[in-house]
């Protein structure tokens, strides 16, 4: 209220004219700088609404503990052995699962109208979306580190060491960034955050559970093995596992990166096509 009463716009009309006149048009910001600026916005939002870190902290901890202790004895004989198998996979699962919040966050931005402002600016067109995904990358990194810490606390001893674990996380973040473009596209064609979460959850379930995250595919029926072997998440998990275990990395690394590039090419293009004229 005090700000309201103190300010008299009638008397500030000349100062508005001053503010307009004093604005010299700076040179146009480049694509990298505007993308980073939007990433900065995402971090500011975390600062003001720290609750949005709830999903990236609580969810991975819950997943890790639940799967390790629920299945550990049955699948691997002991939780100690199972954690060695499941840790890289549960990392992948935690991060990929929370990527779907990207879609509902974008939809909220669109509905609030602030995206109209961004779309009306003379900037590199994808930068609001790229920046948003970069900001989400920070959230994914937080989730990865927390998951890794929980796994370490309950007995995970990766042979790849710190370097191997960080390399695995880096690969995971690249894939998560690429997967994010599916959700940005969904948020431009579906009208409510609920619908986006629904479709995203429906898409992620077979990708995450129909993979080699939890159990060795050798125990699965043939049709499921066929799905698991074409599922890019399996390649990603195999590559992350190899990096973290300090084992030789096979062709899966290339396949995971190729899928990432493909996702950006296809869903990035679809997203930018809808971005020009969204619903």
């Amino acid at each position: 209220m005090s700000a309201e009463t103190k300010a008299s716009v009638a008397s500030s009309a000349p100062t508005i004219a001053d503010a307009l006149a004093s604005a010299s048009r700076p040179p146009r910001a480049n694509a990298l700088s505007t993308s980073i600026t939007f990433g900065w916005r995402a971090l500011l939002k975390i600062k003001h609404v720290p609750e949005q870190l709830f999903d990236v902290t609580v969810f991975p901890v819950m997943m890790t503990l639940l799967f390790t202790y629920l299945f550990g004895g049955a699948i691997a004989g002991s939780t100690g052995e199972y954690i060695a198998y499941i840790a890289p996979g549960v990392l992948v699962q935690s991060v990929l699962f929370i990527t779907m919040y990207t879609g509902s966050n974008l939809r909220t931005d669109i509905d609030r109208g602030v995206f109209d402002r961004f779309r009306s600016l003379p900037i590199w067109r994808p930068s609001p979306l790229v920046g948003m995904l970069l900001g989400d990358g920070v959230r994914f990194l937080v989730a990865s580190l927390i998951t890794a810490a929980v796994c370490l606390a309950i007995g995970w001893r990766p042979a790849g060491g710190v370097i191997g674990v960080l390399a695995g996380i880096a690969l995971l973040l690249v894939f998560a960034f690429s997967l994010g473009w599916i959700w940005t596209f969904l948020s431009l064609i579906l009208r409510t955050p609920q619908a986006i979460m629904g479709v995203a959850g429906f898409t992620l379930m077979p990708l995450l559970f129909g993979s080699n995250i939890f159990v060795d595919p050798a125990t699965m029926p043939g049709w499921l093995q066929a799905w698991v072997s074409v599922n890019p998440v399996s390649d990603l998990v195999t590559a992350v596992r190899a990096l973290m275990d300090g084992a030789p990395v096979g062709g899966e690394l290339g396949i995971a990166l190729a899928w990432s590039a493909g996702l950006v090419a296809v869903f990035g293009s679809l997203t930018m096509w809808r971005y020009r004229d969204p619903r």
């Binding site: 910001a29 600026t37 900065w40 916005r41 003001h48 109208g113």
Partner: peptide, 24 residues
């Protein structure tokens, strides 16, 4: 726009600084 055309979660200063950076 007719509806909020700034980010409600950010402060007034942060919003204008964000736009100033985007404008170069």
């Amino acid at each position: 726009g007719q509806f909020a055309s700034v980010d409600e979660d950010l402060t007034g200063h942060e919003n204008l600084r964000l736009l100033a950076r985007l404008h170069g």
